[in-house]
Design a binder for these strands. Structure first.
Lengths: 229, 229
DNA sequence: GTCTATACCACGATAGAC
DNA sequence: GTCTATCGTGGTATAGAC
């Protein structure tokens, strides 16, 4: 009985409240723009609680990322494992691998229960974050997934030179993170209509088609190039 | 005579020193991480000089971007104008348009005189910057170029639906900005070798091939897709 | 007009009382 | 676990020297 009652009051409620508030405010105001006084006010906890539960603001940022990114990347690896198992020994199609990676992010965006959209956008910002501990953290969290997917693509595209593959993975990762993370302002640059920005199904089709084509591109350009005057 | 002597001491030397120092330190430590005390110390000027010449830190950031981005975007439009003029009435090849846009950024990277590399990386960070005035500024500065290039691509690809083109431009812009702006940490994710990161000629070939393929991609995926278990 | 010295308030972090 | 007081540092504003 006491255990049942205990379960109603989570053991780390303060922690969770801080994480939720931080995720939202980091997105709105940036990592340095969102002050601890603002975070704790929104979470309804004391200013010093962040320091008590996480140790520092940087550690809080790390916790915000790990909470969602660790499960996401684990899921990505499981998805690829399942795919290769079901394929037996035959090599996977590039589009299949792309979708396996994509789906985790897109599912996150569609999940309106948690702050999925917020978090995906937050991720995009982290890649360009300067000399903070954040940069290293993201690379570290992504490393195993990247290794795994790189190997899968190498098997799927045995004729593509290794160095070329690395660059194309880099381009693909860039397109993905930028597209999902782009703020309204940047969308405005290309004139995207906001209504279908979060239609995950359409986005998956469009992104997969674009990325697959780039990945499979011939080593030279396709269209005719005239000499510039 | 007095005029000759005056010329030795530029009218806005302090301004320029602040801009140069800021460009470098904003890249190293981020916009909020680079304090005004650090900036002014590196520039060898007084702390209050920033406020006198620019008004605020945000206004300084804007000035840093405008100094290089305004000429860059003007150059991009001129390049496209020249290209269309030399082509007469015939439509341009997509790869030509891509290269016209790309070359300005790549030339910036190769120009070791000014802080070209620094600035390009700085640009990438600005796209993901949160609710600061920076976001709006970048969109505003890019808008005319985007309109111009969008029209050129639309003429080059008359069979691609308009909405599809907008998305592909968005993907292309994402790849470009991410690739050029990526920090060492992110490069490490994909395992890129640092030595050829700034070989502009190679990068132009690789990026053009990748982006052209994505732009010309068929509306569905190309490779076979098995049903997932 | 340019530049400097300095004062002001908000921030992140910490120690210690409760 | 929580709260308060406090410290060093951040961006900003202004008064006055040149």
């Amino acid at each position: 009985m006491t255990q049942t009652l205990r379960a109603l009051k989570p053991p780390h409620e303060t922690r969770t409240r801080i994480l939720d508030a931080s995720e939202e405010l980091f997105m709105q105001h940036g990592f340095e723009g969102a002050s601890m006084r603002l975070l704790t006010a929104k979470a309804g906890v004391n200013l010093a609680a962040v320091n008590y539960h996480f140790g520092s603001k940087d550690a809080l940022i790390e916790a915000v990322f790990r909470r969602r990114l660790d499960p996401m990347n684990a899921e990505r690896i499981v998805a690829l494992d399942r795919l290769e198992k079901s394929a037996g020994g035959t090599p996977l199609a590039p589009a299949e691998i792309i979708r396996a990676f994509l789906r985790t992010s897109l599912a996150m965006i569609e999940d309106s229960r948690c702050g999925g959209r917020n978090f995906i956008r937050l991720l995009g910002r982290a890649y360009t974050e300067p000399s903070k501990p954040i940069r290293g953290l993201i690379g570290q969290l992504y490393a195993p997934v990247m290794e795994r997917y790189k190997a899968a693509f190498a098997r799927a595209l045995p004729n593509l030179p290794g160095e070329e593959l690395v660059w194309r993975l880099h381009f693909m990762f860039g397109t993905l993170s930028y597209t999902l993370a782009a703020t309204d302002t940047v969308q405005l640059i290309a004139g995207c209509k906001p209504e279908d920005r979060y239609d995950a199904k359409l986005l998956e089709e469009r992104l997969t088609a674009f990325l697959e084509a780039g990945l499979l591109a011939p080593l030279g350009v396709q269209s005719t190039v005239r000499k510039a005057a």
